[in-house]
Computed example of a mutant assay.
Amino acid sequence: MENEALSSAPWIHGAFWVLVAVLIFIVAFGARIAVPLGKLLDSRAAAVRQSLDEAAQLKAEAEAMLVDARKKRAQALAEAKDILARAHEEAARAAAELTAEAEMRARARERMAEERIQAAQASAIAEVRSAAVDVAIAATVQALRDGLTAAEDGRLVDHAIAEVPNAFTRRAA
């Protein structure tokens, strides 16, 4: 049994001595490895902290830019609505002016047409009167020359009336 008790002692196994060697290595070289490893981890933590601070600053700047962009968008929309309203008002005013001007020109042209019609009527009436006078004078002259009877006189008047359209065509030519 004693042999069994000795065989269960931890220093007999190779794993015990490997553990002892690792502990000696850690004690001997642990400080030399821990300090640079700590510095490396500290620098990494500082870099991460700096990146987080920079990200927070960029986020704040982005939020400020977003707020500014929203304000500018709202201002641009308000200006666009104002411009659109003014354009509608200007278009309505221009349409009203053009309508009034068109009506005024139409009335002026209508008056000019009426004046031309009246002048043409007056001219036609004057021509008819002149032709009738010419025919009457010619009939009178012929009647006086010939010393006509009443039947012949009626025939000459009928002939003179029939000649009125021919007198117009001769005057027009």
Rank of each mutant, 00 (worst) to 15 (best):
M1L: 09
E2A: 00
E4A: 00
A5S: 00
L6Y: 00
S8R: 00
P10M: 08
P10C: 00
I12D: 04
I12R: 02
I12G: 01
H13D: 06
G14K: 07
A15W: 01
A15E: 11
L19E: 04
L19T: 07
L23W: 13
L23Q: 13
V27D: 09
V27F: 08
V27G: 08
F29I: 11
I33A: 12
V35L: 08
P36Y: 13
G38P: 06
K39A: 09
S43D: 13
V48F: 12
V48P: 02
Q50E: 14
S51K: 12
D53F: 01
L58W: 05
L58Y: 07
K59N: 10
E61F: 04
V67W: 08
D68A: 15
D68L: 11
K71Q: 09
R73D: 13
R73K: 12
R73S: 15
A74R: 15
A74H: 11
A76S: 15
A76Y: 15
A78V: 12
A78R: 13
K81T: 03
D82W: 04
I83E: 10
I83H: 07
A85N: 10
R86T: 10
R86G: 08
A87D: 11
A87C: 11
H88M: 09
E89G: 07
A91Q: 14
A91Y: 14
A91V: 13
A92Y: 06
R93D: 12
E101L: 06
E101N: 02
A102P: 03
A106T: 01
R107G: 01
R109G: 01
E110T: 01
M112I: 03
M112G: 06
A113Y: 03
R116G: 02
Q118S: 07
A119V: 01
A119N: 09
A120C: 02
A120K: 03
Q121E: 14
Q121L: 15
S123M: 07
A124P: 08
V128D: 09
V135C: 02
V135L: 15
A136W: 03
L144D: 09
R145F: 04
D146G: 06
G147M: 10
G147A: 14
L148V: 15
L148S: 12
A150I: 09
E152F: 04
D153L: 11
R155L: 04
L156G: 05
L156M: 13
L156F: 01
D158R: 13
V164N: 01
R171C: 00
R171G: 04
A172P: 03
A172T: 08
